[in-house]
Structures are given as C-alpha cells and as structure tokens.
C-alpha cells in the first residue's frame, strides 16, 4: 500500500479544491493507502471543531433537514479510519486564532511536510489561486 502526502492551502467554503482533496483522500483510504495532509495558510480552518450546520431560509429547511456536513466533520470521518494524518501549520493557526480542531489533528511546521514528502510514494502540492 502507498503513502500519499498532500499540501493544501485553500480555506473551507471558497474553493472546490478542498472538497476534491477530501474526495481523493477518501478514495485513497478506501483503497488501503495512507494519506498525510499538510494544511497551510487558510486550509487550517478546514478542521475547526465549532463549525456548525445551519438552516436554509431560501429553501425553508431546518439545519437538520439541510444535514450540512461541515469540512471538519468530513475530516473527522477520515481521521476515524486511522489511515489519515493531518497537520495544521502552527504559525498559520496562530495568525488566524483558529486553534480549536477536531480530535486527531496535529500542530506542525513546514519541516513536517518535507519529512512526509521524503517518506511518501507521492506528494501533491495544491496551491491557492
């Protein structure tokens, strides 16, 4: 089985890239691979524990009916497989004040990303555009 490392920069709710990365991670985990994700800059907000579903007044639906899976719920689900390791860039977290994460997320630094890249079968770098 392979190990994949992904560096990601986009914040939640503003790009399709974040969902795509989670789709790729889900596919990799289902295939038995290990996935490392290094969240840099705005991507550290993907794991914030206090993200909450909300109602949709346009559709007239409640929060329960909307059943909005926040990015941190998706990530918590992936972490629950034991095959995903997630590191948030610590300095990026500090400048955003976004340190309350779902369980299993770790604080780290670019050196962790470099180490992962050396140990992985492949590394995918996804910048923000």
């Amino acid at each position: 089985m392979a190990t994949l490392t992904i560096a990601l920069m986009d914040p939640p709710y503003e790009a399709e890239t974040t969902t795509t990365v989670l789709r790729i991670a889900d596919a990799a985990v289902r295939k038995g691979h290990r996935v490392n994700i290094f969240a840099y800059e705005g991507a550290v907000n993907l794991t914030m524990k206090d993200q909450a579903a909300h109602p949709n007044p346009v559709k007239g639906t409640t929060a329960e009916e909307e059943d909005h899976p926040t990015t941190s719920r998706f990530i918590a689900g992936l972490l629950g497989t034991g095959q995903l390791d997630w590191i948030n860039c610590g300095l990026c977290v500090d400048e955003r004040g976004s340190g309350n994460w779902v369980e299993g997320v770790r604080r780290g630094a670019p050196a962790d990303f470099f180490k992962w890249s050396q140990e992985s079968d492949n590394t995918l770098v996804i910048g923000t555009k």
Partner: peptide, 22 residues
C-alpha cells in the same frame, strides 16, 4: 462558478440574491 458549491450546498451569490429578493 463551482468554487465552494459542494461544501456550501449551493452558490453563495445565487443564494444571497434570492434572500435579498425575499
């Protein structure tokens, strides 16, 4: 287009335009 629509479950500006109409 299609930036964040999966996570939002809609497009935020179409949504806001509809809310403002309402």
């Amino acid at each position: 287009a299609y930036h964040g629509t999966l996570e939002e479950q809609d497009d935020t500006i179409l949504w806001m335009s509809h809310i403002l109409k309402n």
